[in-house]
Design a protein around this nucleic acid. Structure first.
Lengths: 184, 184
DNA sequence: TATTGTTATACTCTATAACTATA
DNA sequence: TATAGTTATAGAGTATAACAATA
């Protein structure tokens, strides 16, 4: 079990396990009990699995809602803020540059999902908020999104939870709930 | 602690915690001990954190190596296969469509990082492999990548491990290493 | 002068589908 | 006919930087 998921293909025959990287650049050591190394390995696997999940979520958002993940993210921010958000704040929260938030907002606005309004006090400021149509659309997207996530994560569990959590044998579902509880 | 990271901004003042989503669409329940709900919440947080990490990795790859994440992924596959890989296999492993693998390979080839060769037996097949320059470049990238990951993950630990793992109080570093060992 | 948002630009990634050359 | 890879196309994301309006 020296495999590093990050070097591996997310889609391979044996789920998420792969051969070890060449020894001259092996970044993952054998000792799974070494805290730091084990932690790195854990995170590498998380990165790989979230890549797979994000890929699928993106695909479904596009097919079923003609939307992208950045658009979903932006709408999610506005959904939580009924008063709307300044574009700069949206930029910060979504990790999208100011200029690109403008483009993102352009597309959403032309689809009637959001509106942009000038703020009263400071006329440099623009506030974006969801339209009624936007709220309703996002509500549907979010419900679907939740269901997808449950489905995808349960797939991950069945196929690779054992690998994620480094166990070679059978792993109980309760492993992840134990995570939640561990505060000792 | 009913906050769902997926609804939240990765960059917010209090690290990764946020206000709860509106009740009419609350997908995260209070009971952290309900296995399925807790699991979903855990994954939502993982998705958010891996988004932050990927964003930063992408930025550094670009700034320090003039490379993208898909390029890094493709090269990582080839690094592990000294004989090279057929483009179709590369496509499957990287989750990039055939046509787009061609474009990706075009760019890498024009930078002298990979070469494409026709296979002997089947003249439809093209095999890509790293050039010497490609191997050396990727080796440097991978070493940097490993260091970045360690750094970023330790940041995540310090700031938000407690939140990731749902503990409200102090959480030991050993939490994640326990993950690795749990096979009971 | 500093800030907010826009515009402009150049690349890259991504999805879809038609196309070719082999088999 | 099926397969491997390419080409073509369109749209979207992304980073960078210059810019206008306002403060």
């Amino acid at each position: 079990m020296t495999a590093s998921l990050f070097w591996s293909s997310p889609v391979s025959d044996n789920s998420l396990d792969v051969a070890a990287p060449p020894a001259d650049l092996e970044i993952i050591v054998n000792d799974a009990r070494d805290g730091q190394k084990a932690q790195l390995r854990l995170w590498l696997r998380m990165l790989s699995i979230t890549k797979i999940i994000s890929h699928e979520i993106r695909r479904r958002l596009r097919n079923e809602f003609q939307a992208t993940l950045p658009q979903f993210d932006l709408m999610a921010q506005l959904y939580r803020e009924r008063e709307g958000l300044r574009l700069g704040e949206l930029s910060r929260r979504t990790m999208v540059t100011n200029g690109n938030v403008t483009g993102l907002a352009d597309r959403l606005e032309s689809d009637g999902l959001i509106v942009r309004q000038s703020a009263d006090g400071d006329r440099r400021v623009t506030v974006a908020k969801l339209t009624r149509h936007g709220r309703e659309t996002f509500a549907r997207m979010a419900r679907a999104h939740e269901a997808w996530l449950r489905e995808l994560m349960s797939e991950v569990d069945d196929k690779t939870l054992a690998q994620i959590f480094g166990a070679t044998g059978r792993v109980k579902r309760s492993v992840s709930s134990r995570l939640i509880k561990s505060e000792d």
